[in-house]
C-alpha cells in the first residue's frame, strides 16, 4: 500500500462518486417531477374530472374532457400532416440525399428543429389565423406539424439508412422497380424504428404549449370541427396555472398528471414497437 496507490484509489472513488451523483441528479429530477405532479394532481383526478367540461369559476367540480379530446384531435391531425412529410422526406435523404441538396435539406431540418416553438406558433398565426380571421384547431395542428417534421425526418433517415445495402440489391435483382423497392421492401424493414420516431414526436408535440397560444387558443366548451378554437391539455394547464383561483391550480396539476400519463403511455408503447425489430435481426 504505497501512498501513490492510495491516492489513485481515492481519486478513482471521487470520480466515480461525482459521475454517479450527476446521474442521480438527472434521474432524481425526473422522479421528483413525476412524484410532485402525482402528489399535487392525484387528488383531483377522478372519473368526473375526465368526462366533464370545465365549470365557471366558483362552481365546484368540472373537468377537462374537452381538453383531452382537443389534444387528441390537434395532435392526431398534426401527425397526419407532419408524419407522412417527415417519413417521406427522411426516405429521400436516406436514399437520394448523398449530395448538396441532401446536405441542404438536412441542415434546414436541423435549423427548423432549433426554432423556438413560440416562433412556430407566431408563424402559424400569421399564415393561417390572420387570413382566416379566427383561431382554429387546424392552425394549431399546422404549428405542431412544423415542429414534428424535422424530428421525424431525421429519425426516419437514420433508420432507413440502417437497412443493409444487400436488402436493396436483393430486391433490385428480382426486377422490382426502384420506387417499389424503397416503399415496399426498404421502408417496411425500417418500419419499427420509423414508427417509434413518429410516436416519440407525437409525445413531444402533445406537450407543446407555446405554439398553441396563438393558434388553437383554448376553449372552455366543446369545440366545433377543426375550424374553431379548441381546448388542449397543455394550454389548459397553462391557463389554469396562471389563473388566480385555487381550484383551477388544483385542476392544472391534475391535467398535468393526465398529460404526463399520456406521454408516458406513448413512450412505453414506442419501446414495445421497437423490440421485435431488434430481436428479429441477426
Amino acid at each position: 500500500m504505497t501512498p501513490g496507490y492510495r491516492r489513485r484509489k481515492l481519486i478513482n472513488a471521487a470520480c466515480f462518486g461525482l459521475t454517479a451523483c450527476c446521474a442521480a441528479v438527472g434521474m432524481g429530477a425526473l422522479l421528483f417531477i413525476l412524484g410532485y405532479i402525482a402528489w399535487q394532481g392525484a387528488g383531483a383526478v377522478r372519473w368526473s374530472f375526465l368526462v366533464n367540461l370545465p365549470k365557471p369559476v366558483g362552481e365546484p367540480g368540472g373537468g377537462i374532457a374537452n381538453a383531452i379530446v382537443g389534444s387528441a384531435k390537434v395532435v392526431g391531425l398534426a401527425t397526419l400532416l407532419g408524419g407522412p412529410i417527415g417519413v417521406l422526406g427522411g426516405v429521400y435523404l436516406a436514399e437520394f440525399g448523398q449530395n448538396r441538396t441532401g446536405a441542404l435539406v438536412r441542415y434546414a431540418a436541423d435549423l427548423l428543429n432549433g426554432v423556438p416553438s413560440i416562433v412556430i406558433g407566431v408563424f402559424a398565426y400569421t399564415l393561417i389565423v390572420v387570413p382566416a380571421k379566427r383561431f382554429s384547431a387546424l392552425s394549431g395542428s399546422v404549428a405542431l406539424a412544423l415542429i414534428m417534421i424535422p424530428v421525424v425526418l431525421r429519425n426516419t433517415e437514420e433508420f432507413v439508412r440502417l437497412v443493409p445495402h444487400t436488402v436493396r440489391e436483393a430486391a433490385l435483382a428480382l426486377g422490382i422497380p426502384q420506387w417499389k423497392v424503397i416503399l415496399r421492401v426498404v421502408l417496411p424493414t425500417a418500419a419499427p424504428g420509423v414508427l417509434t420516431g413518429v410516436l416519440l414526436a407525437m409525445s413531444r408535440i402533445a406537450g407543446e404549449t407555446a405554439p398553441l397560444i396563438f393558434t388553437a387558443f383554448g376553449n372552455r366548451f366543446w369545440d366545433n370541427g377543426l375550424l374553431h378554437p379548441i381546448a388542449t391539455l397543455p394550454h389548459t394547464i397553462f391557463t389554469c396555472a396562471i389563473s388566480p383561483y385555487k381550484e383551477w391550480h388544483q385542476q392544472a396539476w391534475a391535467a398535468a398528471l393526465v398529460l404526463m400519463f399520456f406521454v408516458l403511455g406513448v413512450n412505453v408503447s414506442a419501446r414495445l414497437f421497437l423490440r421485435p425489430a431488434s430481436g428479429g435481426e441477426r
Partner: peptide, 12 residues
Amino acid sequence: GMVFQRPNPFPS
C-alpha cells in the same frame, strides 16, 4: 436473376 454471397432474405 441473382443470388448473392450472403443470404439476404427481406427482413420484414
